[in-house]
Amino acid sequence: MEVLLPHSLEEALAIKGERPEATPIAGGTDLMVDLNFGRLRPAAMIDLSRVAELASWQQEDGHVFLGAGLTYATIVKEMPEFKPLVQASRSVGSPQIRNRGTVGGNLGTASPAGDALPVLAAYDADVVLRSRARGERSLAWHAFLTGPKKTAIAPDELIIGTRWRRLRGPGSFSKIGTRNAMVISVAGLCLVVDEENGAVKVALGSVGPTILRATEAEQQIAAAMTSSGAWQDSSITITEQVIDEFGSLVAAAAKPLDDVRGTAAYRRHGCRVLARRALIWALNERRLPAWL
């Protein structure tokens, strides 16, 4: 196998243009497993770990851009104000894996169990792709993630990063797994509140062929908060019945399967539990005084 070692983004794009069959590798936390099990035998790999341009993040015009090569460890260290993303990053693998693994890798693998993906879906993030021949394009996350381990990336493109409009409001990422570390989740959920637009966004991981948004649940809770006046007055209580209904709608949005990690029934149930909890956390957080 050939391993190609670009030192800049330009060089990487040039190589990808010439060798579209070459598999890009960053942290290798998914690919090395596949190589180890003999499930993957690419003729060539492009090691992106030396491409410094990919390993940064910045904010401009109320948007956040997160480079594909940013590791989970860096996110945990440098991006504390993005709590759901930090929570998801902290739940990835072990310290060693978080030191290597990147968000770009999560996107490239496009596994429904990628922990960062529900967060990007809840943020309504775009995925930024670039090729040397055609330049840059952005795809909405759902247009990019087309199926289980399937994406809309063109053979000559690389994932540059992901971009989203910065939201104001509480949120969380939570997941269920057999143990507290080095676990592929049985169900994962990200809930974020968009205070400016009066919206609640809920994305699910590991419970369908790809990342899912629970749109009916989102609309139900947003409407309930509107009718009760909770958007304006966070002290207004959301009834238990509304929370239950929200949980049921999120569970209904899941499309789980039985596999070695869990049964479909348990996964659906897990979505309901995570949804209720995430909503209650968010509602409680809205009630906290601003100075806290």
Binding site: S94, R179, R261
Partner: peptide, 11 residues
């Protein structure tokens, strides 16, 4: 070792 779950130091 990825999928045969046994406890880690955290558990």
């Amino acid at each position: 070792l990825l999928e045969y779950k046994s406890p880690t130091a955290l558990e």
